[in-house]
Amino acid sequence: KAKLLVLLYAFVATDADTICIGYHANNSTDTVDTILEKNVAVTHSVNLLEDSHNGKLCKLKGIAPLQLGKCNITGWLLGNPECDSLLPARSWSYIVETPNSENGACYPGDLIDYEELREQLSSVSSLERFEIFPKESSWPNHTFNGVTVSCSHRGKSSFYRNLLWLTKKGDSYPKLTNSYVNNKGKEVLVLWGVHHPSSSDEQQSLYSNGNAYVSVASSNYNRRFTPEIAARPKVRDQHGRMNYYWTLLEPGDTIIFEATGNLIAPWYAFALSRGFESGIITSNASMHECNTKCQTPQGAINSNLPFQNIHPVTIGECPKYVRSTKLRMVTGLRNIPSIQYRGLFGAIAGFIEGGWTGMIDGWYGYHHQNEQGSGYAADQKSTQNAINGITNKVNSVIEKMNTQFTAVGKEFNNLEKRMENLNKKVDDGFLDIWTYNAELLVLLENERTLDFHDLNVKNLYEKVKSQLKNNAKEIGNGCFEFYHKCDNECMESVRNGTYDYPKYSEESKLNR
């Protein structure tokens, strides 16, 4: 008799109507990190870190770059004969040098303040090359056809396309004075040089004057150069050297050249137009028929994500570079809930034993079982409120962090190594801060989002509990077992918050 009662009780308990509160689960393989956990499985997430590029040089917003090819900045601007293909260059979106560009200054020497000139050019998007001192009329008392084997072109001695090597005419090199007034309405880049012979005999042979000088002056520039005559090792078949100089001439300003020898005179100059998204990159990537809004030396990035880990040097509207390998923000729920887990921000989770793959029309909802059958029903209101809140948060985070910009490298010469090392340390410090901030932001927001979901499920549970009161009992896994019969209409009233407690209280009292 006792065995019969136990079996009867078990049958009745199993047959009781139930309603459970749960949440969506799926077959997603997404994982995120939080402050407290690593690799948390979630139903949905968004990636904030771009880690792919196309490996190509592309047009930037429809404008092609200027590819210097086998030449570098120095060779292009001075007019190395091997860089003749660059003479027609007028406009570009950015400038590309190759790491091993070999054609710079063909006659050995240095372009002074080269690093600063590169910085200036990094904001130039177009130029006009014009004859600042016409070759045939500007130097009537001097020979202007100086050439050298060091600047050979097609097997013949030649010289820079933008400079003139002035030497004596006959047996004399009379003092020369020439000036140019900038009437271009924009900055003009003027380049010139000073020749330093290897011996007094060479000085006399070329310029006749043993104590020659070169003077260059404008409103913002004033220097006097004296040739340094000295024996030097042979470089590119030359014992002599040429140093090259430049200045930016403001609109309306005048530049005056005065010399008694050794002047490498300007022939062509450049009127410059600035462009905020221009820059110089060093890259071996090849040019393709493609378009982008962000270019790196590795390749083009076409992404609206706020961060990238491809390269710190970028041109155009680019994500911020960070050292992170993963920045994924959760938008959905835990896919593998932890039992009795309390989140960092106070939300209680884990009283549900598992997510439901059968509930596909919402994030949170119900599963019921009664004599009429069983089924899932999503709670659309709480789901939609959660979707709206999380979507707004993700968009806000992306908008705040998605300050796209150009980031170019800084140039230092060989004598500025300590400054370069200090600059690298400062840049590394800023990069570490950006990386830390980005990672911390994602970790915190992921923790908040998961706790937010847990709290929403808990609130749904409490909503049902407050309606049923003692007409049902909690069975410990997020479910309630009714003390009365609850048909589909009754189940719907529980879900929509209109459950009639008094209607079922007498039946429940008897069954309790």
Rank of each mutant, 00 (worst) to 15 (best):
N178E: 02
G261Y: 01
D110Y: 11
T74D: 00
I264P: 01
R154V: 13
S101I: 02
N39M: 09
L176F: 12
G75V: 09
T31W: 06
N80H: 15
Q67G: 09
D84S: 06
S85A: 13
K56L: 12
K169P: 00
A16M: 09
P81L: 07
G261L: 01
D30G: 07
H239I: 15
N183F: 06
S45C: 06
W246S: 02
V216N: 04
F130A: 07
R241E: 06
A230N: 08
E115C: 06
A212K: 13
N47I: 02
Y107E: 05
N182Q: 03
A10F: 14
V149I: 06
V40P: 01
R232M: 06
L263D: 00
R118D: 01
S122K: 09
D84M: 06
G240M: 11
E250S: 13
N100Q: 06
S273W: 15
R161K: 15
F130M: 08
D17N: 12
I73A: 02
G22T: 01
D51Q: 03
I280Y: 06
P266L: 11
S123A: 14
V42D: 10
P227G: 11
G146V: 09
L7G: 09
L249I: 14
I229T: 10
K61C: 00
C71P: 03
N27R: 01
E115N: 01
K156H: 10
T31E: 15
H239S: 10
G104E: 09
Y107P: 03
V190A: 08
R90P: 02
D171K: 01
V149C: 04
R241I: 09
S273G: 05
I35E: 03
T177A: 15
T34Q: 11
L5Q: 14
T34L: 04
L117G: 03
P88K: 11
R241W: 15
M242T: 08
S125C: 01
N47W: 11
N100M: 06
N103K: 11
L263E: 03
C58H: 04
A41K: 12
E50L: 12
G279V: 06
R241K: 09
S199C: 09
F11S: 15
W192D: 01
A271C: 01
P108A: 07
F276D: 14
C58N: 10
G210W: 03
R129K: 15
K169H: 12
E128C: 02
S123V: 09
D237M: 12
W192H: 05
D110V: 05
A259M: 10
R241P: 00
H53C: 05
T282R: 12
N141T: 04
V12F: 11
C83R: 12
N182C: 14
S172F: 13
G261V: 02
Y9H: 04
A259F: 06
G275T: 12
L48N: 05
L163E: 03
N220D: 15
D171L: 06
K186F: 02
L5W: 15
S85C: 07
E102H: 12
S172T: 14
P197S: 07
E136C: 00
A64F: 10
A16F: 06
W139H: 09
R223D: 03
